[in-house]
Design a protein around this nucleic acid. Structure first.
Lengths: 302, 302
DNA sequence: GCAAAAGTGTTAATGTTACACCCATGC
DNA sequence: GCATGGGTGTAACATTAACACTTTTGC
């Protein structure tokens, strides 16, 4: 601790004794968790491979503000825990799961995000395989916690070319649904390039049932997920311990929103997986080999 | 505003009237700015191309805590401004510059980052060309604001293989220096892979003269810069309006810390630049064409 | 045999790397 | 003419994309 005296003649000890944080009116901080998983449609036709969809976990708010709307799980950061710990704690409190892939996404700090007071939210993204999540869902109060299927679409695009400035506006719809409920939002992404400087901003245009600015957080997380799946191994956090390469390909396709060619896909991910001796059985087609994640994959080849 | 009543029988209006944020003891939020630029050594030998180095802007603290040490510019977020605005305001207040490339980096939230109170800091990265920055530096109180040359080195690496867990530890040194001062820090990066889950953490091992955990922020920003320069156009924010391809290559080399082959580099960045009619003069070698950034570059080709 | 999916091989196009070469200037 | 950097072409290699083909199962 410094013994130097500042402009008021105080040492660091004296300075800290007089420091009163409650004198200042300052924003509060929350963490919000984006929990993604992939589920199969259980349409059990033994001939066809069931389709998969991406889901996000949400919680129905029982108190103001945004009472009755669906929000991402999250909560205030305590004084004695760091951000990652707060995220882990909230995740455990709300879903019971631990030791997951968890990544800090972005910190949202707009002024009117919450009517209570000024709230700054650091968002985290988590990917869970449906087996792990499935066992947890049952234990929770199902009325308030639900998985929603995630669908996004680019509705329209507009480019404006000014003499010194290029503007591209994209309108996206986000649809979250399950058997009971459908939530919907429309968002506008604006990319502005002025000289060398490019800026990107998101704005919620329409919102039906999603609390706060959480539609923005979901779209932001999806974008990150789509980027990272191309050059990292994060997709495996959505897989069970044993999986077939077709199931893995389905997960990639559902996230990227496009079909991939089988042979090329297998070459691309070959370094990420290890063959186990096992195969699937009882399907009305050739059995497929079961693979597992290769924790020793090397950078190259992807 | 919702007219639904919550568990206490309150409407949203009633709820908000009774909500008192000062009842809660909560972390405060600051923004910290990482301002990078590239400067040429002014060793004026008309035959040789001057070397370039990467610099970061820092401020000498005049008050507790960390009095006398060098810190990144930054400050508390006000209630009536969002995070990006706070970053822009701080940048303008401390250096006078506006409308720059600015990107949110990461939010640092460890418990003991600041002895005053619990402080969570959202860091922003900014890239400035030396012409723009140069004209500003002169206007400021030079005793307290300075650019430091940035050098990093990987000192050592250790891999541990446990039955269920792989740990890789890397020790980096960070040296910040200019004609007056040298600052130094040693940091350890720990990458842990347990099953499918990979975690990365930074820890400051030694620190000589850098305030708070700012050494960590600088290394984090550098890593991001090195990644993004490979697949985006951010490097051009470090360039003046007109530049030669060799100067551009020097900037890439200084950031990536390795030499690049001239012919291949030029092919790689060809979509990012436009030829102007102009060339350099008075050099003791063939004149070189001056280029400018191409704001209409298309994704492909990089 | 047929439908469905598993699994593999080949070729062309494309991108990357390494290297060699010539050009223009000041001194 | 020489040192220095500017500027370009090419061949070898690696990666990616498109497509065709064979195999194995349940019914």
């Amino acid at each position: 601790m410094s013994l130097m005296r500042n402009k008021d003649g105080l040492t660091e000890k004296e300075f800290l004794e007089r420091y009163d944080p409650s004198k200042f009116e300052r924003p509060s901080v929350t963490v919000d968790m984006l929990i993604f998983t992939v589920l199969s449609k259980d349409a059990e036709d033994n001939r066809r491979l069931p389709d998969k969809d991406l889901y996000v976990l949400m919680i129905k708010r029982r108190d103001h503000p945004c009472i009755g709307r669906w929000a991402l799980p999250g909560g205030f950061v305590n004084m004695n825990e760091n951000l990652d710990e707060a995220a882990q704690r909230e995740l455990k409190e709300e879903t019971g799961i631990e030791n997951l892939y968890m990544e800090q996404l972005y910190t949202f700090g707009d002024v009117n995000r919450d009517p209570r007071t000024r709230i700054i939210s650091t968002s985290y993204m988590t990917l869970v395989d449906s087996e792990t999540l499935g066992s947890i869902r049952a234990g929770d109060d199902a009325a308030d916690v639900a998985l929603f299927r995630v669908k996004t679409a680019l509705e329209g695009e507009k480019s404006t070319l000014l003499p010194d400035c290029r503007i591209k506006e994209q309108v996206y719809t986000l649809i979250l649904d399950n058997k009971q409920t459908t939530l919907k939002a429309t968002l506008k992404k604006t990319i502005t390039r002025k000289g060398k400087v490019t800026r990107t901003g998101w704005e919620i245009v329409e919102n039906d049932g999603i609390a706060f600015d959480h539609a923005k957080i979901i779209l932001y997380g999806l974008e990150r997920l789509r980027n990272k799946i191309e050059y990292t191994d994060i997709a495996f956090n959505l897989m069970p311990d044993l999986f077939t390469l077709s199931e893995l390909q389905q997960v990639y396709e559902v996230i990227l929103g496009k079909e991939l060619s089988k042979a090329n896909f297998r070459r691309k991910i070959s370094n990420f997986v290890l063959k186990t001796g096992k195969s699937t059985e009882d399907k009305a087609h050739r059995p497929s080999m079961l693979y597992r994640f290769n924790p020793d994959w090397t950078e190259r080849g992807f």
